[in-house]
Design a protein around this nucleic acid. Structure first.
Length: 104
RNA sequence: GGAGUCGGCCGGGCGGCCGCUGGUUCCUGUUGGAACUGGAGGAAAGUCCGGGCUCCAGAGGGCAGAACGCCGGGUAACUCCCGGGGGGAGUGAUCCUACGGAAAGUGCAACAGAGAGCAGACCGCCGAUGGCCUCAAGGCACAGGCAAGGGUGAAACGGUGAGGUAAGAGCUCACCAGCGGUUCGGGUAACCGGAUCGGCUUGGCAAACCCCGUUCGGAGCAAGACCAAAUAGAGAAGCGCUUGAGAGCGGCCCGUUCGAUGCUUCCGGGUAGGUUGCAUGAGGCGCAUGGUAACAUGCGUCCCAGAUGAAUGGUCGCCGUUCAUCCGGUUAAACGGAUGUUCACAGAACCCGGCUUACAGGUCGACUCCGCGU
């Protein structure tokens, strides 16, 4: 995934995306211990998962995605992360807007 | 009113919309869907002690190692807790205390200081006795004697007074301190208080080695138990070896191709994966009784997270909270409003009892000291 997927980055996280033929979206979230203690890591994961969930409502299934947190993510709330994720998916990677099938 | 000590509790609240996850019921029973309902902490943290539970080992004893160390009680157990004693700090409430043995041995003590262990002589005191000078009184400070005073240090081999002496010294004596023995009183005990006798003084550190006493088998829920694709096989039964078991093509028959240490079933094994362990417990709350208390007993009542690439969230509104700016208000504050901003430490992972560490702010109670008023 890290080797073959497309990589996009911003201040808060890295996005790895790869297209496939299955009728669902498969996602993963990574927060390393460098980001902070357990409370901070949990919050980062929840924000990224919520952003993925809300973005996937508008996306055509058929790709898999991994988000890797960077340390600046602990400084910001939900909306900057959602905004950046939509930018990566729909502007840079050109995912079709539609669909709803989601798988972890 | 100010300063302080100790203990307890809370540690954002309410509501909408969209999600995650456990349970129950229904639909459905492959996946799933609907309704109702539960869903982080006082430390969930560090993983430092003690237990439950599980597996392994185990005749009995010892060594080594580790932990602990005043007394009594509590507890499943503890190195924890409660009560008490000794020592230390504080005016006090209160706090701190690894608090057995230094007269079994080994070892250690920076700097300063003359000297740091059965010590020492820098300044100092004396110079009786002996020596030198002198008729002598006396002088010299040479041999030698002393450790009272000064000074150093965290610590210098008891303190005060008297006798004694050349000067001094527990050298002698009295009292005091300390040590040891005997004994009386109080207390379960640690210990406290008193009487008497003794020898005359024996420094500190054991969280240095050590000695004495007490306790300790090992590993851990990734423990352990069960189901079980795959894949080794040492096994058993059946069928079959050109008279063809079985497999492929095909909806089926025929047909055709492959086909012999072969095929099927069972057994066995246990990988991936799943189930269980797994949440009713040394349980919470309330009341009563016993106890100074820790805690125990009885009765009533409640069911209160259960994830596993690891749920318990996202967002909006109102209120609360911190700070800043502006406006109103005021002598100045208090107070009111607007805008922005802030809201501690921190996330269950088999379960309990502790310890330790982190923590914005708020709140309640008890007590102490100081000031003022009555």
């Amino acid at each position: 995934m890290y080797n073959y997927g497309k990589k996009y980055c911003c201040q808060y996280f890295f996005t790895y995306v790869r297209d496939h033929d299955e009728p669902y979206i498969r996602y993963g979230v990574t927060v390393t211990r460098r980001i902070g203690n357990a409370v901070v890591r949990n919050r980062a994961k929840r924000i990224m998962r919520e952003a993925l969930r809300q973005s996937a409502e508008y996306a055509e299934p058929g790709f898999e995605i991994v988000l890797v947190a960077r340390s600046d993510i602990k400084k910001v709330g939900f909306f900057p992360v959602l905004h950046q994720l939509k930018k990566h998916l729909f502007e840079k990677h050109s995912i079709h807007r539609k669909g709803k099938v989601l798988e972890r």
